[in-house]
Design a protein around this nucleic acid. Structure first.
Length: 147
DNA sequence: CGTGTTTGACCGGCGC
DNA sequence: GCGCCGGTCAAACACG
């Protein structure tokens, strides 16, 4: 077992999709997040819209029942480490303290050439045992092999 | 050298 | 305007 498999095997405690990713308040909990049987790895695969063989797959729209890629999704895990290794290469480009939270928010961009995907990582402001990871954008390249 | 991190500066939107 | 706030840039730095 490599470090990647180990680290992404965190239970997902909640999962959000953003219909309007310009508006952080407009989040819609996914119906299938209730089961809590998803790992961070599952969430990464679904959120980026790429399946194991690299084809576009996406997540299930609970209204239409169809799979579609989402521009922005977020999930919460209970984790002691903040940087979940999701198999992609990320370059950190910023860190900010956000209002009403004692914890900084970290900004990452996908290292792949021309890929527009970004993610944010921060600890839950009320319960620091939880980590909130937000992805925005859809990768324009092949996913890592182990995804 | 090539790549990634750190960190203050900078910028744009928004409310007053 | 001006200041707050969240997001990004980029120069310096670290490290293999």
């Amino acid at each position: 077992m490599n470090a990647y498999c180990h680290e992404t095997n965190f239970q997902v405690f909640d999962f959000f999709e953003f219909n309007e990713w310009s508006n952080d308040e407009d989040v819609v909990p996914m119906n299938y997040s209730q089961g809590l049987n998803y790992t961070a790895n599952d969430m990464v695969v679904n959120s980026i819209g790429l399946s194991n063989n690299g084809s576009r797959e996406g997540i299930i729209n609970r209204d239409s029942g169809k799979k579609e890629s989402r521009e922005k999704v977020a999930f919460i895990t209970k984790s002691e480490v903040e940087i979940l290794d999701d198999g992609f290469k990320w370059r950190k480009y910023g860190k900010k303290m956000v209002k009403n939270s004692p914890n900084p928010r970290n900004y990452y961009k996908c290292s792949a050439e021309g890929c527009p995907v970004k993610k944010r990582v921060e600890r839950d402001k009320e319960d620091q045992r939880y980590v909130v990871t937000t992805y925005q954008g859809i990768h324009n390249h092949q996913a890592p092999n182990h995804l």
